[in-house]
Design a protein around this nucleic acid. Structure first.
Lengths: 204, 204
DNA sequence: CAAGATATTTGTAACCGCTTCAAATATGCA
DNA sequence: TGCATATTTGAAGCGGTTACAAATATCTTG
């Protein structure tokens, strides 16, 4: 089959070149997007700038133009779920999630001015906003199941599903606000009440 | 200037023809979409079927292909806001909104099989789901202001904004569920708690 | 009703994102 | 070295969308 073993990480020359090419494309894309705006830069131009053909570009990013921006961003699902399951003892689920969400809008990484530009680009570009939200919302099921598991309800429990959806939606909401940290805070407060009072009751 | 007075409704021959053309386009589009699926039908074919040029089609629907499906749907903002402001005395805001939302997923209109097909088309087509949600979310600001107004907080109050966003998001959430009525119900329950306990406190 | 001012429709050409495909080209390996 | 396999490439094309100028239809006014 494909893939001669090549254990753990970057081995052959081939792999290295591939990684470099991918990087070159993503870098050029982001550079141009930040310079002149997402819509003002064509995929042909990016390919040109990265010195590859358009075919190659799409070979590396089959998910489309938007994906060029989110290369190696890939917020991972495991961490989200762990935030719930591995929370310090005594800490409530809403608290744990709040802490996790706050990390996205207020952390050392967030205060890097380059990250601010990046964030602004996404927020200003509807296509990127949508794409970002869609990616993030992919974790809905996993979160819902984790929540249900925590309180001993069936994996498809409606309350858990709704709470998961809303929780994830908090980030998109916050992103559209002048003060994202405050927004996350208030939105969490809102959901917190509903969760605790609803969950401490028996299943309907 | 433009528009000789022409009070209240359909006057000249021109207006009538325009309305007819628009209708013909939208009808043909929906017919084909339902028959063979949104992605399997090209805009050129729709124009052909409605006996207009592609230019004309886009002249009537500059918002793009998706808009062909939502012609004269246009859920109106006024009704949403009124659901809050004109609610029966003694009824809470969450109750009023719940009733309004339930109307979307459970009403005589909803049980028309043609509407079910329509709904299924949207739900099955990512582009249409997105478009629909975006349209619906346009009312966020109006709802948030109405809410703030009801409880005497500043128009840009964060809790009101969050509550408005989540409330509107309920419909998209419900749409993705096997039993939308139950979903609306549970989601409303969740938000209800947060609203009442948060709102009955003084501004932070 | 004839004209002229306006609005609408049309065809054409083109751009953009994206896909397909077969022909190079590069790489890894025996 | 030579062959199998990956990768890259260019060209051609599709579907959505826009720009534009040339027809065509409608309305208005004399």
């Amino acid at each position: 089959m494909a893939e001669t073993i090549d254990p753990a990480g970057a081995g052959g020359r081939r792999e290295r070149k591939k990684a470099a090419t991918r990087q070159a494309i993503a870098d050029m894309a982001l550079r141009l997007f930040l310079e002149r705006g997402y819509e003002q830069v064509g995929v042909r131009e990016i390919a040109e700038g990265a010195d590859v053909s358009v075919s190659t570009l799409f070979n590396y990013f089959p998910e489309g133009k938007e994906a060029l921006v989110f290369d190696e961003d890939a917020s991972n699902e495991a961490a989200l779920v762990r935030a719930v399951t591995d929370r310090p003892p005594g800490q409530s689920v809403p608290r744990a999630l709040r802490a996790y969400l706050i990390g996205f809008v207020d952390s050392p990484h967030t205060r890097d001015p380059r990250f601010a530009d990046f964030q602004r680009l996404i927020q200003e570009t509807p296509a990127l906003r949508e794409y970002s939200r869609t990616m993030w919302l992919r974790h809905e099921h996993a979160l819902a199941r984790a929540l249900a598991d925590q309180i001993g309800r069936p994996p498809d429990d409606l309350i858990c599903a709704a709470y998961a959806r809303f929780t994830l939606e908090i980030l998109t909401f916050a992103g559209s606000r002048p003060d994202p940290v405050a927004a996350v805070d208030q939105a969490c407060l809102l959901l917190d009440q509903g969760w605790t009072t609803t969950v401490t009751r028996p299943t309907p």
